[in-house]
Structures are given as C-alpha cells and as structure tokens.
Design a protein around this nucleic acid. Structure first.
Lengths: 338, 338
DNA sequence: TTCAAAAATGCAATCGGTTGCAAAATCGAA
DNA sequence: TTCGATTTTGCAACCGATTGCATTTTTGAA
C-alpha cells in the first residue's frame, strides 16, 4: 500500500544510476533514446511520480504563480482568474490564489505568505485602500517578477495590465451627452484607485469637450455595492432637481439602482438614462437592458499570466512590456438611449 | 543583494547547531526559552524565511490543499471558493485551484496535477460529464483525504458536503403548487449529477403529494446557460398550451428566460410563475424579483475546507463526518407569486 | 585494427530543514 | 560535595532530485 517510488527505485531495478534516470525523465538530450524508453516504461510501470519538493529545493523554482485579488467572487475577478487558470494550467504552472477582501492589512499578510511560499512570480490587483508599495519590496529585492493588473499601483514602476479606463469613461459619458443629457451623475469607487480615477478623467474630458461645466457634487464616491445602488436611487429622488443621466462604474450597482428607481416610479431611460460598467451578464437580463462598457476580463487574465510565464521562461523582458492597455468597448443597449 | 538566509547562517553567527535553530524556530519545547529568544531575534535581524521545500521534502507535507471546480466564474463557485480561501488563509494553508470547464478529460488532467503537486488533500466538485471515479483512486490508495462538495460522486464512499437538494426542489415546487399552479415545467441541468437529480426528486415528491401527475415532457435537461434561458422561453411560447409555472435550477438561466418571456408579452408571474435556484444577486434586481432557493455557498466553502483542515490536523475523523447536508431556504419574492 | 572524437552514463556534492538518539549541561537532594 | 535525574543541545543521517565534471562506451574515419 503505496510507499512512494523514487528515481532510486527505478535506477535500482534497471541497474543504472539515478542521474541517468533523472535526465531521462527530463528528456535530457545526452541520454540515449532507448535508455529513455526503458526508463519511462519502468517509471510508468512502478507508478512513479516526481517529488516536486526535492526538485524545487534543488532547482530553486516552484512552478507556482501567486495571485492576489480584492475578492474572488465578483464577475470581473472570477472571470480574470478563470482566464489565468486556463493558461497557467496549459503551461504547467500552478496558481495560488488569495484575496485581500479590500483590506491593505490582509493584502500585506497575503503578500508575505506568497513570498515565503516562494512563488516564482506574483500577480496583483490591489485593495481599495492600498496606499503603500512597501510590502512588495521583498519581491523587487529578490527580483521576483511582479505584475499588476486592473487595479494597479501607478508609482510602482512595475509592469501593468489595464484597460483604457479614461477612454471608457469618455465613451460612456459622451454617449450620454449625445443622447441629449447634460446633468450626468457619476457614481464611482475609491478615487485613489486608477480604475476609478481614470474613468472620472474620461467623464471630465467628455464634459469639457461638450462645454458642460464639471460639478464636483455630481461625482459620488461609494463602494459600488448592491446596497449602495439602492441608497443612491433614494438619494437621487430626494434631490431638488433630478439628474437626467447616470454613469455608474459597476453594473451590479447600476442594476440595483435602476431597480430601485423604477420602484420609485422613475422611468429608465426616459427620465434618467444609465450607463454601467463591466458588461456583467446581469446587464443583458434587466429591463431595460443596460448600456455598459465591455470589460475584457478573460483576456486580461490570459495576457497577465502569459506575460508572467513568458518572462519566467526568459522569452520576454518584462520592462519591454511595461504597460499593456486592453481595449474596452461601449455596448449600447436600452438603458442609455432616450 | 539577496542571497537567502538559512538556518545554517543563523547557527553560524550564534555558534550553535542548526538543529537547535530549527527546533527553536518551530517552538520545540526542549529548547531553552532564552535560546529561543536569541535565535528568533537573529532570524528577524537577518531576514530569514523558511524554505518550505526543504521542510516539505523532509516532512512529506505541503500545507497545500487542492480544489477542482467545474468553473471559477460562476456566482456559486466563486463564492464557495471565497469562503474556502478565507479559512485556509487563516489556518495557514495554501489553496491550489483549478477548473475542469465541465469536461471529465480536463478534470482527470487536473487531478493528476494535484496528485503530483502532492497536495495534502483534495476538494472536488465534479464536471457535468464525470462518470468515473478512476482518476481519484491514487488519492484513495495513498490515503490522501478527498472530499466532494456540491456536485458529488455518490457511489464513491467519500465524505461529501451538499445542500438538501431534494428538499429544495420540493420547497420550490410545492410553493408553486400552493400558488395554484399545476403545469410546472422544470428546467434543469445534467441529471447524472446529484444536484439536478435530487432537485428533480423533490419536484416529483411535491407533485405526488398534491396528486399532480408527473409528466416527463415537463422536465427539460439543459446546460442552464443564459442562451438556454432564451431558447427555453421561445420554446415555451410555441407550445400548444402554456405551462403556468417554471422551476429553473439556476437563477441566471431563469432570469434570462424571464426577460425573453417578457419580450414575448408573457406576464410574469401572472401568466407564468417562476422559481429559480441559487439566490444569485441578479435575482433581487430583476423585475419581478425572483423567488429562488438560497444556496449557502460561502458556508459550504467554509465547512468543506474546515473539515479538510481538521482532518489533516488529526482533530476529526473524516468518516465520522461522512455527509454534511447544509440547509437551503426558499426566498419568496415576486416571481413565484400569482 | 587503431584511436581520437562524440555520445552516453555515472559519481558525488548539493539544495535547507527535520529528527532520533546520544551527549553535555544544569539542577537538586542527600 | 556527589551523583542521579532533568533540561538542553548537538551529531549526523535523512528527504529525493539535479548537475558539473569525470569516466566509460560507442562511433567512424584512417
């Protein structure tokens, strides 16, 4: 009943040296093809499985990539992770995934764990409140590749994979303006984070371009949760004058807001047009269907992990690919049309 | 610049043996308190981090738990995983997550990877088409704990964490019946899988209880996707006589179906009542709000991983907890009320 | 047949902790 | 002060694969 087979067992039975067995199993060119066949057959027969710890210990590599995300269970993040896992799996890498739950403190703890787990590389999308780069320094010092995606740390001088948030914000806003809307409320997340700051920039750019004055009171910084969507709706109807459009930086929040507004007898999009963000499946099943920005989440995951793996394999210098910006796209549906 | 510190470095500087250092760092009782303090201080000073491979190699443990799920990016699964990650993280375990993408073939490959990665334990929710236990045998043989959750392999004789799918199916169906509905269409997934087979059983039980004849044509086996929701709606309106209720085993599919039905001028819930499954956030933002079964996904993740960890720590015998059934709950909202 | 070049294989050290057992140091009672 | 009991510490052998270098075997041209 199952004591492990090692290369020594194979070597012993075949009367050859463990070194040859090791090389054969790794398809080393200096080993005779017949010998390789023999060894592989015997390994198969004995049910050999390589001991990764011995191998890692010797090679000082883990074949494991760490991923830290704010949360696992959002449509965007789980889709990004799905993309990452698919490629990593195909390329023979393992993924260790952990979530910061939007807390810098937990992010720091996770970073330490990743570090002492000796991941070969680390992919990070930072928490809402992360404002320090300190906890990533050990990776820099040991030259362990570090790539940010989606929510990045801009002053970090690390490679980053992002979408064109400014353009996305611009597209969303100018679409609303073209529909004849002028008082556009922008509901967004923590403006410390690039994703929200940039969307705001795009929003401002569009206003400027169409000579609409920017009003700071029209930008609401929230946590973009479902509950927030409800509260926003209630707060909107209590305003002296209703806005005629909303640009909300998350579909789920937007949808929750729309639902509540409808309950409060506001007609969407007639009274208030809405544009969301992410192209969450929910955007297609709500009435009216939500105009939104398509977020290429799967592609982002794939590209991020590919960059990492290419770098680890020495195929690609990370600095050369220092900032990859993916294209997002406005999906025009009913909610944004007057 | 960064060559690794080992216990030998610490031992050298302190003029003591590496064995003592190792024991001190692991808080071994035989080591003098003062010595421990000395060693810990020095370790801190030098920026020592333990080499897990050396440790794993010697201890034959990895502190890593493998998880295989059909897909990462569904509401239920990402929530289950979020629960697992949280606990694992707190307990100092790493999670290696991979997805089978509903293919037994990929599931087998992932199982092999997990096996050769030498995970300490494996948590699995099987793919749509998995019909063999073969690929899990290596785990059984080596006595590596294996726990199934949600989608389980019933003849496997392995511990399993599930919800009471039969009761859930019963609750959903009898609720519809109590609303005066009699021709209840059941849209479900692959009936090979316990989750769908059991919900069907519950559906049948409810019919029987209320003396409604069971009609096999009223059970549609699908992939429960968004597209399927649309198709189902179209197929329904083309029926000679409309059903007066739907019990759909996934909220996302249900919501997509409702949306399409509404476009086809069917009134929900007046013409057709609908009950979904999962209590996906989307169920609260659609109009009408979806009556559904709350799925305790986070709890399931937490309990599954806790069982595993307890077992690994020797606190709990797995067989003793051989089948944990979590309670699900009918969430009555608008769509199921006539 | 001979011998240098090329191909294939083996030796032995190494990666960094862990742990059974032996040895040393300390303690305490007589 | 002495000596057995108790605490602490050290020795050295692992865990299993990898790899630089040396050695052996094979190949093929002279």
């Amino acid at each position: 009943m199952g004591k492990e087979i090692t290369i020594y067992d194979i070597a012993g039975q075949l009367q050859i040296s463990p070194a040859t067995v090791s090389r054969a199993l790794n398809d080393h060119p200096a080993i005779n093809v017949k010998t390789k066949a023999l060894i592989n057959a015997k390994a198969e027969e004995l049910g050999y499985r390589s001991n990764k710890f011995a191998s890692n210990l010797r090679k000082q590599k883990t074949n494991t990539i760490g991923v830290i995300v704010p949360r696992l269970n959002s449509y965007i993040m789980s889709t990004v992770l799905a993309g990452m896992e698919k490629i990593a799996n195909e390329e023979g890498f393992n993924l260790i995934i952990s979530q910061s739950l939007e807390s810098q403190k937990k992010e720091i703890a996770n970073t330490k764990t990743m570090f002492s787990s000796r991941v070969d590389g680390l992919l990070v999308s930072v928490a809402f409140d992360t404002d320090s780069f300190e906890h990533f320094q050990p990776f820099i010092k040991r030259k362990i590749p570090l790539i940010f995606f989606d929510r990045i740390l801009e002053n970090s001088n690390c490679p980053a994979i992002v979408i064109d948030n400014i353009k996305a914000g611009y597209d969303a806003t100018s679409h609303l303006i073209k529909q004849g809307r002028h008082t556009i409320l922008h509901i967004t997340g923590n403006l410390k984070r690039n994703v929200y700051a940039d969307r705001l920039k795009g929003y401002q750019q569009a206003l400027t371009e169409y000579n609409i004055p920017y009003n700071q009171d029209f930008v609401w910084e929230t946590d973009l949760s479902l509950e927030t969507g409800k509260e926003v709706a209630q707060r909107i109807v209590s305003l002296k004058t209703l806005p005629d459009a909303l640009f909300i930086a998350s579909d789920l929040c937007a949808v929750s807001c729309i639902t509540t507004l409808k309950e409060l007898n506001i007609n969407i999009p007639k009274d208030i047009s809405v544009v969301g963000f992410n192209n969450d499946p929910v955007s297609q099943v709500i009435a009216p269907k939500l105009t939104t920005i398509h977020y290429p989440a799967k592609e982002m995951g794939e590209i991020a992990i590919k960059s990492m793996i290419n770098h680890l394999k020495g195929n690609l210098d990370l600095d050369a690919a220092s900032a990859i910006t993916l294209h997002s796209e406005l999906m025009i549906r009913e909610s944004g049309i007057s």
